[in-house]
Simulated assay, not measured.
Amino acid sequence: MKNKYFLASTPLILGIISLITYIMVGTKVEPDGTLREPFYLLPFGGLLVLTGIVLILFIGITSMLKKQNN
């Protein structure tokens, strides 16, 4: 895999790991009724997945355009 695709896929992989971690940890209700959940993993993971997809598409399209122009 080329270095540029590896760097672009890193946020995607980290986002998927973050979302899987959220699912595996789950939520807990404390005895006093307080809800404990790692909510920060949802927007962080979603943002990383979206960033990774956009980067991979951008790099793929620019690579195709460069090959077409040559």
Score class of each variant (00 low, 15 high):
residue 1 M to T: 07
residue 2 K to C: 08
residue 2 K to V: 00
residue 2 K to N: 15
residue 3 N to C: 07
residue 4 K to R: 12
residue 5 Y to F: 13
residue 7 L to G: 10
residue 7 L to F: 14
residue 10 T to V: 12
residue 12 L to H: 11
residue 12 L to E: 04
residue 12 L to M: 09
residue 13 I to S: 14
residue 14 L to S: 13
residue 14 L to T: 01
residue 16 I to H: 03
residue 16 I to S: 11
residue 18 S to D: 09
residue 18 S to P: 01
residue 19 L to Y: 03
residue 20 I to V: 15
residue 23 I to A: 15
residue 24 M to C: 05
residue 25 V to I: 15
residue 27 T to A: 14
residue 27 T to F: 03
residue 30 E to P: 00
residue 31 P to I: 04
residue 31 P to W: 03
residue 32 D to L: 02
residue 33 G to E: 11
residue 33 G to K: 03
residue 33 G to L: 09
residue 33 G to H: 03
residue 34 T to P: 03
residue 34 T to W: 06
residue 34 T to A: 08
residue 35 L to C: 03
residue 36 R to N: 09
residue 39 F to I: 12
residue 40 Y to K: 03
residue 42 L to D: 00
residue 42 L to A: 06
residue 42 L to P: 00
residue 43 P to A: 08
residue 43 P to Y: 06
residue 43 P to R: 10
residue 45 G to V: 02
residue 46 G to H: 08
residue 46 G to F: 12
residue 50 L to G: 14
residue 53 I to H: 08
residue 55 L to K: 11
residue 56 I to P: 02
residue 57 L to E: 02
residue 59 I to V: 10
residue 60 G to I: 05
residue 61 I to T: 02
residue 61 I to R: 06
residue 62 T to M: 12
residue 62 T to K: 14
residue 62 T to Y: 02
residue 64 M to N: 00
residue 65 L to V: 12
residue 65 L to C: 06
residue 66 K to R: 14
residue 66 K to W: 03
residue 68 Q to L: 07
residue 70 N to L: 11
